[in-house]
């Protein structure tokens, strides 16, 4: 398993001529296939970060992924891992079943906002309450992507979606849900943070957080969750660059980036 290196390392051969070591490797934990994600969607970036972390921690052969229902429903086709596909919102329950019978394996769920923060709130909250030693990658793009951009539990106030054509009105449709803030108060949760992938700097921070989330599981400290603000140019009706700006300018003020709980 080749390590993924962040900068080139120069070596000298015997005759003094420089050889370049690889600066880019396709992660072992990803399969070399095309994804179905739309142009400009940051699911691909997040997949890549998770795969790199799994590679770097050397845990690919003992990591089990639970895929969600939503845009990442085919995540199991892209990750080079033993994996399964949960019913909508039930990934934390399925992960619980896996982790309880295989306590030495590393189990993570990859879930979107509709999956985790709407239909699956019961499952995530109780997995957190039990302190399940699993890692949750929670991708928040403020819409139901796969079904065509309906209002999500994390849609912003005023956000126009295909099911909130007049814009989300909190008085009628409620307020966005802040998952890591909610879970941080639970003793079973060891790591709860929010990151974003709208810039290179944020991507680097996100990778560090993902790494710490998996390390939290390896250390057996409790449930770890990283919420990642992600773009949906297609359903937001934006170009990819505009969508990244939207995260920075519109989403981050509603979903502040930061660490809400860090143990260990």
């Amino acid at each position: 398993m080749p390590p993924v290196l962040e900068r080139p390392i120069e070596n000298q051969t015997n005759n003094g001529s420089p050889v370049l070591e690889p600066v880019y490797c396709f992660p072992d934990s990803l399969r070399d296939v095309h994804t179905h994600y739309c142009p400009g969607c940051t699911h691909g970036t997040i997949h890549r970060l998770v795969a790199e972390v799994i590679d770097e921690l050397g845990i690919r052969e003992r990591t089990l992924m639970v895929a969600p229902v939503g845009c990442a429903v085919f995540a199991y086709e892209y990750f080079n891992l033993d994996s399964c596909e949960a019913a909508h919102g039930r990934a934390p329950a399925m992960a619980t079943g896996l982790k309880r019978v295989l306590p030495d394996q590393i189990v993570f769920t990859y879930q979107g906002d509709g999956d985790l923060a709407s239909i699956g709130t019961n499952e995530i909250i109780h997995a957190a309450a039990r302190g399940e030693k699993i890692t949750v990658i929670f991708v928040n793009n403020a819409v139901y992507g796969m079904t065509g951009g309906q209002m999500a539990p994390t849609s912003l106030p005023g956000q126009v979606t295909s099911s909130s054509p007049a814009g989300r009105n909190p008085a009628i449709q409620g307020h966005p849900i802040h998952i890591p803030e909610m879970l941080a108060g639970m003793p079973g949760v060891a790591y709860a943070v929010r990151r974003s992938v709208h810039s290179v700097a944020e991507i680097r921070k996100t990778k560090k957080a993902i790494r710490q989330a998996f390390q939290t599981q390896l250390d057996g400290l409790g449930l770890s969750i990283v919420e990642i603000l992600s773009s949906c140019p297609t359903n937001w009706r934006m170009d990819p660059a505009g969508a990244l700006d939207f995260i920075r300018d519109q989403m981050v003020p509603v979903f502040p980036l930061g660490d809400f709980k860090v143990i260990g």
């Binding site: 399964c84 079943g97 019961n122 499952e123 109780h126």
Partner: peptide, 24 residues
């Protein structure tokens, strides 16, 4: 062996689904 009281019947059956997927 594993015993776990789930948060609901929905949780319980999906935990079974997970554990069964591990061949248990």
């Amino acid at each position: 062996r594993v015993f776990l009281q789930a948060e609901s019947e929905i949780g319980a059956i999906h935990m079974v689904y997970g554990a069964a997927s591990a061949g248990k």
